[in-house]
Each structure stands twice: as C-alpha cells, then as structure tokens.
C-alpha cells in the first residue's frame, strides 16, 4: 500500500496531466454532443415519427460496442485525439437527445398556447420559453452522458487517444511487471474520481442554472 502511495506521489505530475487530458476530451465531446443533440431535438420534437427515427438512429450508434466504434474510426480519422473525440461524441448523443426531446415535450401546453397567443413566434418561444423550461431535463441528460463518457474515454487509448486509458492499457499489457498493477489501479481510481467529480459539478450546476420559478 505504501508502495502505491509512493507511486502516486512519484508520478503526480504525469497522472495529473493525464487526468486533465481525460477531462478535456470528455468535455469537448459533451459540449459537441449537446449542441448537436439540442439541434436535432429542436428539429424533431414536434414530429412524433421523425423523432422516433432520430432516436432510433442515435440509439443504434449507442449500441455499437465501444471498442468496435473506436476501431471503425481509424480508417476515417486515423489515430489520436480526433477519432477519440468523435467516437465519444457519438456515444454522448443518445442520453442528451432523448432528454432534450422529453424536456421540450413536457413543457405545459397551456404555457405554449399562451406564448403563442401573445404573438411569440417559434424561435422566440423556443429560446425564451421551451428551452429554459426543458433545461433541468437537458442537463440531467448531459450529466448521464458525462459520467458514462468518462468511463468510455479510457478505452480511447486503444486508438492512441489522450487521457488515463494510456496508463491503464500499458499496465494491463505488462501485468506482473513491478509497477504495472499500480499503473492500472491509479488510472482506474482517477477515472472513478473524475466521474464523481463531474457528477458533483453537474449537481451544483443544475441547481445554479435552473430558473428559480421551477425548482
């Protein structure tokens, strides 16, 4: 155990760097996925059929095993950050898209009718009324996607992606060697810690950004 602690302090800078890279990869993916999901949701949420098709398509992508998806990225985007980022974005879509659609649909129809009745056009209704009211549900989707993506991002190391996956893979490959187990343990620990941290941040963010009248 003291060995492990020693390892941690010895590799501190390296681990910190990997963790930050990991977090950065996740955040980029989530930000992109959120923009894409909200755009898709806004286009489809009023049309039952189209929405079902969009959800089914994104859902299908979601079910592709992560390792396979990363592998599929190689011929198109090569190795490194880019394919990792794109694959993670694809994974992150489903929870956010689904929640955004649900959130937009659950806005009280009387609220929409009164907005319409006062002469708010579609865009204005969307921006001023529907998205703010759907926001708590959207951010919950983002939270689920984020926590999930933190885990999957570790696998991005297979295609030379950044983050904590690198140490994990290396350690696993050299298991039995002196610090191999420490490498694996440390990266797992940090992935879990990062997931928990994100979760807490989202909780706080959700509280802070939810309009006062709907808490």
């Amino acid at each position: 155990m003291s060995d492990f602690r020693e390892y941690l302090s010895y590799r501190r800078d390296h681990l910190l760097e990997q963790t930050l890279e990991h977090a950065q990869l996740v955040l980029y993916a989530i930000a992109t996925a959120t923009v894409v999901s909200v755009l898709i949701a806004v286009l489809v949420y009023r049309r039952e059929r189209v929405a079902a098709v969009a959800l089914a398509a994104v859902g299908a992508l979601f079910t592709v095993p992560s390792l396979a998806l990363f592998a599929l990225m190689i011929p198109i985007f090569g190795l490194g950050f880019r394919p990792a980022f794109i694959a993670l974005t694809v994974y992150a879509l489903l929870p956010i898209l689904r929640n955004t659609i649900v959130g937009l649909r659950s806005v009280d129809s009387a609220v929409i009718e009164s907005a319409q009745g006062m002469g708010m056009n579609r865009l204005r209704r969307l921006v001023k009324i529907e998205l703010p009211l759907a926001w708590p549900v959207i951010i919950t989707g983002m939270r689920v996607s984020t926590v999930m993506t933190v885990g999957i991002a570790a696998i991005a190391a297979y295609i030379n992606g950044p983050g904590l996956g690198g140490d994990m893979l290396e350690g696993l490959a050299r298991i039995g060697a002196p610090v191999a187990l420490h490498m694996v343990l440390a990266s797992i620990l940090l992935v879990v810690a990062l997931a928990l941290l994100f979760d807490l941040v989202y909780l706080a963010l959700g509280k802070l950004t939810t309009p006062k009248g709907i808490t």
Partner: peptide, 18 residues
C-alpha cells in the same frame, strides 16, 4: 395580429420560470 389581442385561457399559462 396576436400582439393586438389579449388572450386569457382557463389554465392561464403563466411562464413559470419568469
């Protein structure tokens, strides 16, 4: 046109976040 006509419904539909 609707900005020239007030509209009040049974469920009122006040914007809860405002």
């Amino acid at each position: 046109l609707r900005r020239r006509m007030g509209y009040v419904i049974q469920q009122i539909g006040l914007f809860p976040h405002m």
